[in-house]
Design a protein around this nucleic acid. Structure first.
Ligand SMILES: [Mn+2]
Ligand SMILES: [Mn+2]
Ligand SMILES: [Zn+2]
Ligand SMILES: [Zn+2]
Lengths: 148, 148
DNA sequence: AATTTAATGCAACATTATTGCAATAAATTC
DNA sequence: GAATTTATTGCAATAATGTTGCATTAAATT
């Protein structure tokens, strides 16, 4: 398991204690986590606004993804392009965007997200004129195994 | 254009003034609308909590869909199965669920949703053991034509 | 007509997230 | 290395969206 320090070293992005702590948590977790879930895993005194700001910074710099849950909370997941970053990325300041085209499952009861890594839908993407594409989000909704 | 009264008459669901007004707005609009957008289109004195409650009632009874936007608001769209309801549905109390498998575009700037009626992705849906499927949401994100 | 059930209106509350600003910490310049 | 500039943090206040409690009104049932 790579540490977040190792990964930051492969980029020109500046690491701070808070960024490393937050990124480490996302690296260790196989599913997207909410702000609340992340905060619980951080040291007791970690400020919640600092966490919001760090998540926004990580998002802006492409190290993580953000998805919106049915429960109005946002869930954060490591950008797997970042984990696999190599020479190609070390030379640039920004992390390359993860096309992120695997699906997620969102439990309508507990709100948790789960990665459905094997689901990669295929379709022709034609947008209306002058619409600009950024990303795709495919979410399957229902109840997770613990919530029936 | 069918009126909401006509559509309610085709079911056993009880119509009230508020339900008819809200449903009429959603029928007239080709894209999902937020609570705020709907409220603006209703008479000045329409209570915002009553709107929340009516949207929840319409959702529970399957007349509308709800999708979560990047902006943390929820957007509501008529269930097209309801519009096309016929004998098959008149006999049941509940509206048949819309599989709702067309995609939506969500503008990252203004938050608006647009229907991408022609996008119907195909993929094999295999969930982890004991997970219960309900619906699918496919959202393309980016900027709409007005927001560049 | 009396009773029960459902819907409404308003205030209070809940949750998630952002903003303002002073205090610290880190980086840069001299 | 001291001084200056820039970036980050911590805490309080504020914003946006949505739900709950409860008394009132309306509608349906007996
Ligand atoms: Mn994932
Ligand atoms: Mn639609
Ligand atoms: Zn669950
Ligand atoms: Zn837009």
């Amino acid at each position: 398991m790579k540490t977040s320090q190792t990964l930051f070293n492969q980029t020109k992005l500046k690491a701070t204690q808070a960024r490393l702590e937050v990124t480490d948590i996302l690296l260790k977790n196989p599913r997207p986590l909410s702000h609340q879930e992340i905060l619980k895993k951080l040291p007791q005194n970690f400020d919640r606004v600092t966490l919001y700001r760090n998540l926004n910074w990580l998002l802006k710099n492409g190290l993580i993804h953000r998805i919106s849950g049915e429960d109005r909370a946002r869930y954060f997941e490591i950008n797997h392009q970042f984990i696999q970053s190599n020479e190609k990325y070390r030379s640039s300041r920004k992390i390359a965007p993860d096309n992120h085209l695997h699906a997620h499952f969102n439990c309508q009861n507990c709100g948790k997200f789960f990665c459905l890594d094997d689901i990669h839908p295929k379709f022709k993407l034609e947008l209306p004129p002058k619409f600009i594409f950024d990303t795709i989000e495919l979410t399957v909704k229902g109840k997770c195994s613990r919530c029936q």
